[in-house]
Nucleic acid binder design. Sequence first.
DNA 1: TAAAAATACTCCATAGGTATTTTAT
DNA 2: ATAAAATACCTATGGAGTATTTTTA
Lengths: 309, 309
Amino acid sequence: MNLHHHPFTLRQLQYVVAVAERASFRRAAEDCGVSQPSLSAQIAQVEAALGLQIFDRTHRRVTVIPGAIEWVEQAKRLLQSAETLGDIAAQLRNPFAGTLRIGAIPTIAPYFLPEVASPLRTAFPAIRFVWFEDKTATLLGQLERRELDAAILAGDPSLPAFDAAPIGHDPFLLAALPDHPLLTAAEEPTAANLADQELFLLSDGHCFRDQVFAFCNRSGRSESPWHATSLATLIQMTASSHGVTLIPALAAAVENRRSTLALRPFQQPQPSRPILLVWRRDAANAVALRAMAHLMSGILDTLQAAPLP
Amino acid sequence: MNLHHHPFTLRQLQYVVAVAERASFRRAAEDCGVSQPSLSAQIAQVEAALGLQIFDRTHRRVTVIPGAIEWVEQAKRLLQSAETLGDIAAQLRNPFAGTLRIGAIPTIAPYFLPEVASPLRTAFPAIRFVWFEDKTATLLGQLERRELDAAILAGDPSLPAFDAAPIGHDPFLLAALPDHPLLTAAEEPTAANLADQELFLLSDGHCFRDQVFAFCNRSGRSESPWHATSLATLIQMTASSHGVTLIPALAAAVENRRSTLALRPFQQPQPSRPILLVWRRDAANAVALRAMAHLMSGILDTLQAAPLP
DNA sequence: TAAAAATACTCCATAGGTATTTTAT
DNA sequence: ATAAAATACCTATGGAGTATTTTTA
């Protein structure tokens, strides 16, 4: 740790940024709630401390000197950091208030978020929820970069820098046309039955695709050349090609409404994906997030109690 | 822009981080060059302003309260931002001093950097050069994240957020065993001659691979199933398989020393790759970087004046 | 000449100092 | 018993104010 004194204060940086944005000392002073001479003095002091001029005052419009643009941009970033620092403190003071940005993967978001959004709002009235949808890898990146506060993911929690709370387990159902042998057979299907079937899958990057792969890890299976980018497409493709596919039970109620596919659970032990709420290990509002995971868990239970479509 | 007053100063954050790192008020005060009561007072003030405790003083070792760890981490990041702000100012005051981190792609770095490093040190004695090697995409990412100050790349400068200065053009040479028909032919080879050859290439992600592709953009060409990860391997593979490949002239002198391959330039217009020095458009030391590109350009000229091995 | 930035000066809030007391092992 | 943090109190720097002058389009 170096002990040299900082040549500028946060307030001074705020003045610099304000002048840069308003292109005027007077207007910047107004924005910052100080007198124009006070602001001028602080700017002059910063310029003196840096040993270089930041603003060109020779014209009516005050402009940032080209060379100093990068410096001002970095000052903006620093102030943004300070803002974040304040946000963290606010969340620490009251974990049940503020804005919460939550992401969910595409095979969960459209089926689960509509169910949980409203109960969450009632349970946590002081929290403003903002929802996002993206694939696992993207969400984890955003989580790390603090662009998200939490994410609803499926899969095993082998995530070093993150903490997670379980929401529940979402079983996979076999989906095919109603007259398909696997649906009409006396016995419920197993992974082995999929060996000689044309299996329809989501495109790469969807964790659901990998999970289905993991379930039926046999070589005899012929993989369809079609890769759907959504479960809706997957169902349409399967139906029109007389193939088979697997659908997460969570999505079944919504996605299979207009389809001609029939659904059937697998034999015990049923294939399924664990659903998790994930956040940064150092999140200030872990208490609130755990409470939310618990609430979501209850909602998932209720959804699963409903009969298959 | 919000006008609310900042609840803390950079100095206070420095104190907090020092206490967190040294686990002691007394030692932190020493590090920061202030008296222990002064530091205590500032810490107390921060805690009061935040409305929450940061440190647990009930034991001999002062520790950060678990909940506040994230806050302290963000404070560290903010101080890092402040440091960068100082660095930028320093570079602005004197663009010909400080530390400069420069990256280069793998098909340039080992052949060009040894030649330029020493002349650069003599020409810019106050600059400390730090060199990196990685593929184009990685380097551009690092450049953007300010982990690098400049990069030596090959290819067209279609880079919106970056500025670039040309260093020169590096022609491609045909490389094959000395008795290969393309080397013994009376006429120098053209792209058309490559159509029916087994062409050896670098692996994906190397821009040199794409540039060779762009040069011989014909369908008749049969592509080798081998993908080298370095020019050295590429040459070995080509030699042992009696194939042909293209080598940047820059690399020829070094890489072909122990090889049995013979080299031959193409007919005019020779295929080549432009070599560029690239930096962030808002870099504070663009003057110095342009000067360096000019010096590198001269060195490249000298290298190219040497006869083929 | 009129709007905007710089200068002159006064004031007081507070960071930092020393001396001392309280606390925890 | 002793090291370390908190408290008490004083000092002085510098950020912010009002009044005024200088600048430039």
